[in-house]
Design a protein around this nucleic acid. Sequence first.
DNA 1: GCGGTTCGACTACATCTGTAGACGATGCAC
DNA 2: GTGCATCGTCTACAGATGTAGTCGAACCGC
Lengths: 154, 154
Amino acid sequence: MADDESNVPKELSRSEWKVMGIVWSMQKAMAREVYTVAGEQFDWSPATVKTLLKRLVDKGYLKTTQVGNGFVYRPSRTAIASLRSAADTLLSNAIDGTTGPLLQHMVKSSSLTHDDLDELQQLIEAKKNALAKSAGNQKTGPNQKSNTQKRRGS
Amino acid sequence: MADDESNVPKELSRSEWKVMGIVWSMQKAMAREVYTVAGEQFDWSPATVKTLLKRLVDKGYLKTTQVGNGFVYRPSRTAIASLRSAADTLLSNAIDGTTGPLLQHMVKSSSLTHDDLDELQQLIEAKKNALAKSAGNQKTGPNQKSNTQKRRGS
DNA sequence: GCGGTTCGACTACATCTGTAGACGATGCAC
DNA sequence: GTGCATCGTCTACAGATGTAGTCGAACCGC
């Protein structure tokens, strides 16, 4: 079996994220359109964009359909799936008590819709309940403060 | 001007995060201790760890104090500060409506303490209020599906 | 003081990344 | 059908990264 579209896709590099950002936003794009946007936005030469498009195809993030003498590029992975992998990597770097503060920072600095906030709220409520329950049936004494200490007054 | 300790520190690479993870956990460490842990955990040769420690010192993430013929290494940036930069990078890759789902995924897949969840809850509540207020002066129907918030002309 | 152990510095080298030029193939306008 | 614009591929090359070997200096035990 060929692993040309591995189930464990390679991570994107900084520049590759930028190109994918453009293609994701446009859903599909001719090379020319990507050049134009990338040229304006990042001041890249078309040659640079060409290289990146090629690498993205090789990495399996873009698929192509021939049209005329060129391709239409379109994403083969969704933005959110890719972001999730990147998020997992980030989370895997968080040591002991840092995950909470990390997420707090992210929520703080993101612009979210009301709906987004609602969903988060529900998630958190659910997690709290789960926590409470698991703390309940595991009566290991009143002082299991968990590994992550509480850092008051930072 | 010398930028030996730039205010915009270089990002860490995958391997460098791992080494920093060890040092952050130990607060300070002799090379030997890092070798040992890294050897067990990642099956790296001591030479590899040495190289990474050096690079981390060069990048300004570790500072050293001479002790005997070696150094004590200790972090010069906190884990959380470093995570925050990485998080900002990640968020900067999120296009239009993906930030919400991204954060949802992260909250879902993280293990958080009750306190962490509380803080998040408060943050979210605050953000909702802020949103409501800014939406208040511009009447929006019940179906604001908007991905990017409506920010008043900055 | 001598020898083994360990340290940090330097060197090595393949791969990946950022950035771009050169070039042959192809399409479009006339 | 002939040029010119554009496409994708190949090549280039410097810097970053992953991974590790070599080596002189310094320490520790005797």
